[in-house]
Design a protein around this nucleic acid. Structure first.
Lengths: 165, 165
DNA sequence: TTTTTATGTCAGCCATGTTGACTCATTTTC
DNA sequence: GAAAATGAGTCAACATGGCTGACATAAAAA
C-alpha cells in the first residue's frame, strides 16, 4: 500500500527513518543496561537478577505468576535467580493470605537498597535525556514507545495519579 | 539539586515518570525482538546472528573491527556467529584493497533476503507506532532516544540525505 | 628490520534461556 | 467429599552467547 505512486526518494527516506528507529532501540538498550550490569557483577549477579529486583520493588507483594507474566521466561529460569536472591536476603517470600499456595514477593531493606543503586543509574540517564529533549519530546517518546509495546502490556502505563489526589 | 523545596507530590510524579521510562525501554525491547527471534530459530540462529546480519546489511563492506565496535563484544564471541554465517553462505568476506589484513563483510543474496525477512517485522512495528503517534511524536521519540544513547554513538543518527540530493 | 595491527583460533568458564518430567499443597469444581 | 485444576518448586539436560587467556599469521607501519 505504501508503494502506490511513491517517488523513490520518499521511499528511501521512509526506509532510512525506520532503520534509524530500529537502531535507536538497539543502541539505547545496549547503553541503558551497561551501568547496572557493572554494579551487578560486583555482587555476582546478572541482568536477570536486576529484572527480578526491579519488578519486585515496583510491585511489592506480587506473586511468582505475576513476575513470570512480566518477564516471559520459564519458572525454571526464574527459580534460579529468584532462589539466589531469597537465599542471599534481598527478597522475602510470604504465603498469600487469600490463597496460601501463592508466594508473595517483597524486597528486604537490603533489596531496596540494591534496587535503588541499580536504577539510580538508569533514572539519571533517562532524566538527562528528558531534560535535554523537553516536555513535548517526552510526550512523543511515550507515545511511540507505547505503540511499540505489545497491546497487552500498554495498560501498565496508564497515567500516574498523585498519591491522595 | 532536585530536592530543593520540591513538594512530595511532584517528586512522586517525577519518580513515577522516570520509572515508566525505564519500563518502556524494557517492554519495548522485549516485544521488539520476539518476532525476529522466532524466524531465526527456524534457521538455527539466535539474536546474535541477527545483529551481525543487520549491521553488515546496513554497512556493506564494513570491517570486522567496525562490527566489533558496534556490537561491543569480544572477537571470540563474534567469530562464532560470523563463522556460521559465512559457512552457511549468508555473508562473504573479501580482503581489503587498501589494507589487505582487513576482511570486508558483505551480505550474499541469501543474506540480503534473510535480513529483509527479519527486519520487515521490526520495520512494520515501528511504522505502525510512528503512524499512530504522528510526526511530532516521532521527532520527540528521536530526541529522547538519542539522549539515552552514549554520546559517542549519536553521530550515527545524523539526518539522512536523499540519494543524489 | 622490528613492531604494531587486523584477524582468526583453541580451550574453557559462566549466565541465562529452553524442554520435560515430576512433587506437593491448596483451591476449585463437580 | 472426591476429583481436577492451579501455584509453586525441583531435578536433569541442553543451547546460546557472553567472557578470559593464550597463541598464530599476515600485512602494514615505524
Amino acid at each position: 500500500m505504501a508503494d502506490i505512486k511513491m517517488p523513490t526518494r520518499l521511499l528511501f527516506l521512509r526506509e532510512e527513518e525506520l532503520r534509524q528507529g530500529i537502531e535507536l532501540l538497539y543502541f539505547a538498550y545496549r547503553d541503558f543496561t551497561r551501568g547496572p550490569d557493572e554494579i551487578l557483577s560486583e555482587y555476582g549477579f546478572g541482568r536477570a537478577h536486576h529484572r527480578v529486583i526491579y519488578f519486585v520493588g515496583r510491585h511489592p507483594g506480587m506473586t511468582v505468576s505475576d513476575l513470570l507474566g512480566i518477564l516471559r521466561i520459564t519458572k525454571q529460569s526464574l527459580s534460579r535467580v529468584l532462589g539466589q536472591l531469597v537465599e542471599e536476603g534481598f527478597i522475602i517470600q510470604d504465603k498469600g493470605e487469600r490463597d496460601r499456595r501463592q508466594r508473595l514477593l517483597t524486597l528486604t531493606e537490603k533489596g531496596v537498597e540494591l534496587e535503588r543503586q541499580l536504577s539510580q543509574n538508569q533514572r539519571e540517564r533517562i532524566a538527562r535525556a528528558y531534560r535535554n529533549a523537553g516536555a513535548d519530546a517526552v510526550e512523543g517518546f511515550r507515545q511511540v514507545m507505547l505503540g511499540i509495546v505489545d497491546e497487552a502490556d500498554r495498560a501498565r502505563f496508564d497515567r500516574p495519579r498523585e498519591p491522595g489526589a
